[in-house]
Write a protein that binds this DNA or RNA. Structure first.
Length: 497
RNA sequence: CGGGGCGUAGCGCAGUCCGGUUAGCGCACCUGCUUUGGGAGCAGGGGGCCGCAGGUUCGAAUCCUGCCGCCCCGACCA
């Protein structure tokens, strides 16, 4: 092992960075806070995107595209919204460069100042709702179910590859409805779509919940979230779906004529997931040997490694195997690069998280078998050549299931109930050398008196915030963990990304 | 926006305190041979405005001044 990556127990943050870089997912760019998503990382995103897009279409949505630039005046129409984003906006002030008269290269041409500055979208509610005003006249125009795949910019102080970058890729759905009920159903429906995607494709278990007022999206009446737990015991908000009420309709004067020939403001939702999901994927499954990703999202699902060199007999068997696998829609590669030796390839493919590796050597051929290794458990076994393709296909399913089970067990094992504030503090401050050097404490299920004041106080004292109020919460009489005031349900606290 | 750290070959670093041959090491790269079932060995080779700009000096990667960039930690946020 010439080039080991940092162990999780030593430095979790560095471990994450090592994985991202060494697995070839992304690099820091020349621009502060931005990243270059490399082909392998982008392939993961494409797989996510393809599946999500399919699910959006199945729920009746269509794609469209709105401008990157938003007139400054739009952003201030909705008071809470501008409050939420004002601090992190990139602003375009000029539209022309010129040669520096002093010979210093190009400079901004001061005569090309924009009359109204443009904001690089941090999210698109404003420009979309300004457009919807023209699109919506009657109840017959509703519901309007639109999604866009785009990049957005939020000028973050502190960034981390995939988890938080100044520019990131995402999808944002923006829908308009005739009734409050319909909009509410839509926001819950999309939250469910996200939860299904996370569990079935990312093998990442999530808790569906609703955000507290304090954690709510700027401009929303209600924010629904899917929350997941990373290996270091910190929570990740993996996706959000917002019930926007009539806030944007009122701010942008979007009305429709109902069946009774009366003007009404429309009801809205918006929902999004981003490249941040890739960060969540990494931190849910990967280990000290490198990236581990679920087969359904892996750019390459099976790699075939010839041992030692790809002689004609080996290549022939590999070719047949590849055909059989491709016939089942499996993404397979034959690593016949003669530059590296098998040992190097084994380590490299594990580092890059390819779920299944098939080794074919001369000895194997004599016995009519191949060696099949799975990335998640590192188990290897010999399988007859004839049954190898079917075995590998089944193994991919097993790995997908195993990853979800393992992550679910980890998540469930790390939801702790606390009834006294001392216990609460002990849980968030606990060190777990068997886990990670910066153990976050996992989820804590505790009673809360429902006030923002108490929530902020707990955050101040422990750094833990309320991640969500689970939707399927059982009602239970209790007393607030901090104030002792009566409460009728537990909420989930955690330190969060 | 505060605190810390780092800019020397594609990557990772040493050298900087205490100025002085031709700036060095590992990995990667190129050529050849031997190898190949868990990160190969030997031999030969290519690659540097030492972050940028000034200054001090006979002489600067090294000292001084200014600037730029990035990373990590904290506050804020998806």
């Amino acid at each position: 092992m010439a080039k080991a990556i940092t162990k999780r127990t030593e430095n979790y943050s560095q471990w994450y960075l090592d994985i991202v870089k060494r697995a070839g997912l992304a690099d820091h760019s020349q621009v502060k806070g931005c990243m270059v998503i490399k082909p392998t990382g982008f392939a993961v995103w494409e797989n996510m995107k393809d599946q999500l897009d399919r699910m959006f279409k199945e729920t009746g949505h269509v794609n469209a595209y709105f401008p990157l630039f938003i007139p400054k005046s739009f952003l201030s129409r909705e008071a809470a919204h501008v409050e939420g984003f004002a601090k992190e906006c990139a602003v375009v002030t000029h539209h022309r460069l010129m040669n520096d008269p002093n010979g210093g290269g190009v400079v901004v041409d001061p005569s090309a100042k924009l009359e109204e500055e443009l904001i690089v979208r941090p999210t698109s509610e404003t420009i979309i709702w300004d457009t919807y005003r023209d699109w919506i006249n009657s109840y017959r125009d509703l519901p309007l179910l639109i999604n866009q795949w785009a990049n957005v910019v939020r000028w973050e102080m502190r960034t981390r590859l995939f988890m938080r970058t100044a520019e990131f890729l995402w999808q944002e759905g923006h829908t308009a409805h005739a009734t409050r009920e319909e909009a509410m159903e839509e926001s819950l429906r999309m939250q469910q779509v996200y939860a299904d995607f996370a569990e079935q494709y990312m093998a990442m278990p999530v808790i569906r919940g609703v955000k507290t007022a304090n954690e709510r999206f700027a401009g929303a009446d209600e924010t629904y979230t899917i929350e997941s737990l990373m290996q270091d015991g910190k929570a990740l908000q993996a996706g959000t779906s917002h019930f926007l009420g009539q806030n944007f309709a009122k701010a942008f004067d979007v009305k429709f004529l109902n069946k009774e020939n009366q003007q009404e403001y429309v009801w809205a939702t918006s929902w999004g997931v981003s490249t941040r999901l890739i960060g969540g994927l990494i931190m849910t499954h990967s280990d000290d040997d490198g990236l581990v990703i679920p087969p359904k999202l892996a750019p390459t699902q099976v790699v075939i490694v010839p041992i030692p060199k790809p002689g004609p007999e080996i290549a022939e068997v590999a070719e047949k195997l590849m055909q059989a696998l491709r016939a089942q829609g499996i993404r397979v590669k034959f690593d016949d690069d003669e530059k590296n030796r098998p040992g190097f390839k084994f380590a490299e493919h594990e580092l890059k998280g390819i779920p299944v590796r098939i080794g074919i050597g001369k000895r194997d051929l004599e016995k009519g078998q191949v060696e099949i290794a799975r990335r998640d458990t590192k188990e290897k076994q010999f399988v007859p050549i004839d049954g190898a393709a079917a075995f590998a296909a089944q193994l991919l399913d097993d790995i997908q299931q195993n990853l979800l089970q393992k992550a679910t067990k980890f998540r469930d094992d790390n939801i702790t109930r606390a009834d006294h504030f001392d216990d609460f503090k002990a849980i968030v401050n606990a060190t777990r050398p068997d886990q990670t050097e910066s153990w976050g404490g996992g989820f804590i299920s505790a009673h809360w008196d429902g006030t923002t004041e108490t929530e902020l106080k707990i955050k101040e004292l422990t750094k833990a915030t309320i991640r969500c109020i689970p939707l399927d919460n059982e009602q239970e009489e209790g007393r607030c963990i901090l104030t002792g005031k009566p409460s009728n349900q537990r909420v989930l606290f955690a330190k969060a990304y």
